[in-house]
Design a protein around this nucleic acid. Sequence first.
DNA 1: TTAGGGTTAG
Length: 529
Amino acid sequence: MPLIRMQNLLLKTLVRYCLNERVSKHVIALVPLLLQNDSYVKGYDYAKFSTSTGEFDNLAEGLSKQIQLVVNKVSVGSSEEEILSSLLNDQICEGISVSHALVDMLLHRFRDDWKSAYAVFRWADSRSCFEHLPGAYDLMVDILGKARQFDKMSELKGEMLERKLVTLRTMSKIMRRFAGARRWNDAVRTFDELPTYGLEKNAESMNLLLDTLCKESQVQMARGIFLDLKSHIPPTVHIFNIFIHGWCKIKRVEEAYWTLQEMKGHGFTPCVISYTVIIQSYCRLSNWNKAYELLEMMESEGCQPSVVTYTTMMSLLSKADKVEDALQIANQAKSAGCEFDIQFYNALIHTLGKAQRITEAFDIFKVEMPMNGVHPNTCTYNTLIGMFCRHGQEEMAFNVLEDMEKAALCKPDLQTFYPLLKSCFRLRMPDNCLSRLLDDMTVKHQLSLDDSTYSLLIHGLCRVDRCDWAFQLFEEMICKELVPRHQTFRRLLDEVRQKNMYDAAERVELHFDKFKASFRQSFPGQNHH
DNA sequence: TTAGGGTTAG
């Protein structure tokens, strides 16, 4: 592999890792390298990160300016042709030098707006000195598939064939999008035409098709296809785990269990994944005896449960309020000499919190995790903050938030703030506390409030007699095209009427009428959004 | 989403 490609691959992997763990400072360090090489990376994600100094700022700033220029030209509601021609006939856009990073960021930005995405894709393609990377094609195919634009998607697939760019990755996205639209025959046809695209119908591609069908709850159809194919394509151990997962997904755990036997019949030994998936299913069905039985069975058959097995059982037991049993599993994991990872610790902290063992939970975070070299992630902090707030220890919760910001190992998200906001209202904290929190969320951390946060805020503000502020947030919500819930409308309307805020009442009513039709379509008691 | 796990569920 050429050195440059290898570097890019490595960088890409590192960035993915950092993004998953939300380790912003590491991503920032990697971005200049990536942009230098103009490699394919999830641009949209690194655009969300910012830093005060350094090279990253200049590079990111240049890119974000370019993005803004293009975004300004793209008007909502136009057809893809109209958008394309407005981009092509614009002097400012003409002055933009198109890079792969720019295309990638724009495609991610428009991933739910196929018309804009498609126009941008074509606009970039019109440049004589620019050629899309295979990754951009795949992304475009996926965006079209997600929007159910299957004709356009197939057209693009044809173009990719001419340029010899169709990979199994491309075909896999196409199969998944067809299956997502319940167009099973098209998904299967995509598999059948693999040879036309220079690709092989082998175990790997068959597994992709069958996995796609199973994940869409079509395990029976997948089995039928498998039976037809298995004389031509020798099955691998993966396929049985795919079926096990498929049966468990539709809650037919007995068939999953039976697949273990089938697997053995084909000369494969069930692996830790096979057992873990079934154990998870038994737990979800509250069949605890069976879950424990299987845990014992796997051990007796020489298959050591992994940290995933234990985490699964612990968190599901904990969710079912069987906290003592959950903690027992944690002990069992420890005795087994299992190496704990961040997800295990998060589940353990949560379980200890549920068992009212706050100090021990905090000790895990403060002492045990650092001792074992396991770094906290967003979920760890969120769990701790939620736990302290539920137990009325708000000061500790705020300390954790401070700790999180200082350590800068990961970024807070909406969930980080939700319990803190709730506490603000419960304790009737002064206005400036709420303002500060909101400011931290929206300005410092660049979070965009979602409908459930808005609901919490509007209801909370009505309760503390600040319906003027609640109304302001309501207007903000409407601006963002979020639909307030039925109860939120009712509460706010009652409140502004009581306060004789006639103009506000009129505005709320106006929007209420507009959404009433959609509320009526949902079932009573359901969340209205 | 190229076989498996996590926050609260507002």
